[in-house]
Design a protein around this nucleic acid. Structure first.
Lengths: 330, 330
DNA sequence: TCCCTTCCGGACAGGATGTGTCCGGAAGTC
DNA sequence: GACTTCCGGACACATCCTGTCCGGAAGGGA
């Protein structure tokens, strides 16, 4: 009697899943009987489901049994209209290429979430996810999703975080920081953290972080100088001092300068009332600073420039070339 | 080399179902690669699913592939690690201010979604959604979520769509279109549609669309000249002719120009081999075109310019001002 | 407190069955 | 007609699934 006619395991697991969904609570013996297997095999099947992350709860004792705890029969994911739209738009825009290889994951997540949505919302989500597409940033370096996940986990656990960082000069170095926030801006992810080595706040580009590893030591969260991490990041990026720095004053209100330029510049623009505004520009490459200056000057307003010779020489040189370009008028 | 390390079959079948659900059509090779098995095993898996009554359709030939025809009675599929990360990042970045008032909705959706996750992933999602923040685009106009939803619904139902549109010159007009795709690019949403009035393809900024209303009439979807809507949009935006247009040739490879500029310009950059590259610039404001030219010239390479007098006069004027700026050296 | 019921999981033996590597065939597209 | 795709048979091999033991832990009722 030691026949062990092997039944179809995958199908049985699916049947078990559907049984667990269909009723609140089952005893092991019942399930085993329905599936036509021994109780021992049933227990094995249950642990298989658990290994696949299905939350099957077992209660011992005389009133015991199995139940699927967060299946979908209790809460069928009660999103309202706006929330469903947010999910669809969020998962579509997440596939914009800023995080490496996330496109497939978000497509799969969208399809799965659609399943657990109340029937009324399902078509809306489907329509949006069919219709909407994100243009992938071609130029921004991608972040590995794991890097972001590790950083976030570290922050939650208040654990110090070690990683290798390639700075702007492409020099690698080991860092040890207290992660504070992850901020995304125009397709890039930044980590705002307290650098224990420098004893100061630093921002790191997430795509330049390698081998992030949680340390054992813990830390007590500090307060950022500016409470809002997003505001802090924009201020830091604007105010950062790079290799070359220049100052301009322009006879235009600060708002007009911001609105008139074809893209945001790396720099602080400060309103000075009737005089116009003062601008501080900084970049690692002299070419970039000159680009900023040229673009601002192209707005047409009167300006003054205060810059080191490497910059101002290039600006004058650029001026000469623009004055007499090999032009053919059309 | 006849190692046959046996993988986890039930889990693989669930993954296969989730893949089939997430995309319209898959080739056998793709699926096999994702699942980490040979094509033969994939075929076996497909027939296993078919034996379990899942309607997997196979199409032979060079345009062939597998598809799940009507996935209704699917088992409850759980999100895996990458999908949970995608959800968190997607909903965080959705709050970047491009869609009006979506911040609260995505936060609430995130909180509710956490409930249906496998317990193992719940902390990860919570950690990421706590840690991550999006900088809100201050400058881009916001779209009302309803506008996007109505457009998507229209597209799904193949209904004509009427709306009022304010064009670049701020002139309002009624349009009647066949919606084809919604594309997001750097915080803006665009509608690609066939304009029945103009009898041609048009792209519309979603934030300038008002009173979108589905018409009663239906339409048969057309094929976009470029199959990929995202590629089509970037091409249209780059190639669009605005009020002022200028042409430059620069003695630099196209890639060097793109990488050297501090931001993407509105224009087509075409590689010309040894000569460098040809650039076509276009904008509604002469100031903008001059900005582009100045920024490109600031790269330092030799260039020629071909532009209407309004532009070239301004360029020379800019050149003069840059040559003798009221500079004080530091 | 004891007893009973339930879930839990280790050990073991034997064989069914999932796997990769072959292969030829049919269907559809260029 | 050449090519690409899906389809499925045959085979060898080892993996792993199965039923049958078994002892243990947890909970409820007398």
């Amino acid at each position: 009697m030691t026949e062990t006619p092997r039944k179809d395991l995958p199908g049985r697991l699916l049947r078990l899943l559907s049984l667990l969904q269909s009723r609140r609570e089952w005893s092991g013996a019942e399930l085993a009987e329905r599936l036509g297997v021994t109780d021992r095999t049933l227990r094995r099947d249950v642990s298989r489901l658990r290994a696949l992350d299905y939350p099957v709860e077992g209660v011992t004792g005389t009133a015991g049994g199995y139940r699927l705890v967060s299946g979908r029969n209790l809460p069928p994911l009660l999103l309202d209209d706006d929330e469903a739209i947010a999910v669809a738009l969020g998962l579509v825009t997440a596939a914009d290429g800023s995080v490496a290889g996330i496109e497939d994951s978000s497509a799969r997540a969208l399809a799965k979430l659609e399943q657990v949505l109340p029937a009324r919302l399902r078509p809306r989500l489907a329509a949006l996810s069919d219709a909407a597409v994100a243009v992938r940033h071609g130029d921004v370096p991608r972040v590995a999703p794991d890097v972001l996940a590790v950083i976030a986990a570290c922050r939650r656990d208040r654990r110090l975080l070690s990683f290798d960082y390639r700075n702007r000069a492409d020099e690698a170095g080991a860092r040890r920081v207290e992660p504070h926030h992850l901020v995304t801006l125009r397709g890039r992810w930044y980590l705002i953290a307290w650098d224990t080595g420098r004893a100061d706040w630093r921002t790191f580009r997430a795509d330049r972080i390698e081998h992030p590893t949680p340390a054992h030591a813990r830390f007590e969260p500090r307060e950022l100088p500016v409470p809002d991490p997003a505001a802090y990041l924009t201020r830091v990026l604007a105010g950062a001092s790079y290799r070359y720095t220049a100052r301009m004053t322009v006879r235009l209100p600060a708002g007009a300068v911001r609105a008139g330029l074809f893209a945001a510049i790396r720099g602080e623009i400060e309103d000075r009332g009737a005089e116009g505004c003062a601008i501080r520009l900084s970049a690692d490459s002299a070419h970039l600073v000159v680009q900023y200056i040229a673009a601002i000057a192209a707005l047409g307003a009167a300006f003054t420039l205060d810059a080191p010779p490497e910059i101002s020489d290039r600006v004058r040189e650029l001026g000469r070339r623009l004055t007499r370009p090999p032009t053919s008028f059309s």
